[in-house]
Amino acid sequence: MSIDEKLQLYLSHRAALVEYALPIVGDRMRAEDVVQEAFLRFAPGRPAPGDPALDQPLRYLYRIVRNLAYDLTRRRRLEQRHREAEPDWWMVPETPRTPEELLAFRQKLRQIDEVLAEFPPRVRLAVKMHRLGGFTLQEIADRYGVSVNMVHRMIRDAVLVVARRLSSDD
Rank of each mutant, 00 (worst) to 15 (best):
F42S: 10
G50D: 07
E86H: 06
A48C: 01
P99S: 07
E37A: 15
P96V: 05
A117H: 06
V34Q: 01
F42V: 08
G45D: 11
M29Q: 12
E118K: 11
R106S: 05
P93C: 04
P120C: 05
E114Y: 04
E94A: 11
E79P: 00
Q107C: 03
D88V: 04
E84M: 10
R122I: 13
L103D: 05
A69N: 04
E84A: 14
R81L: 14
D71C: 00
R28Q: 13
W90G: 07
E86D: 10
L72I: 06
P52E: 11
D88C: 00
F39G: 07
G45Y: 06
P121F: 09
P57S: 08
V115E: 06
P120V: 09
L58F: 12
L54H: 08
R41W: 08
A104E: 14
D51I: 06
E94D: 00
P44A: 07
R30L: 15
R66F: 14
D51H: 15
P120G: 06
L68T: 06
V115W: 02
E37I: 02
D88E: 14
A31C: 05
F119A: 14
P120T: 02
R66T: 08
R41A: 08
R76Q: 14
R81F: 10
L103N: 01
Y60C: 12
E101A: 12
A53D: 09
R74M: 05
A104Q: 11
Q107L: 14
L109W: 04
K108P: 00
R122H: 03
T95C: 05
M29N: 12
V115L: 13
E94K: 11
Y70C: 00
V127N: 04
K108E: 15
A38S: 12
M91S: 09
Y70F: 15
E37D: 15
D55H: 07
P47Y: 07
F119V: 00
V35P: 02
A38Y: 10
M29W: 03
G50N: 10
D88F: 11
A85E: 13
A117V: 05
L40F: 07
A48N: 03
F105R: 13
P47V: 07
L54S: 14
R76K: 09
R28M: 04
R77P: 01
F39T: 06
R41L: 12
Y62D: 02
P44I: 03
L103Q: 09
D51M: 08
V35T: 07
A31I: 09
D33A: 12
Y62A: 04
V123R: 01
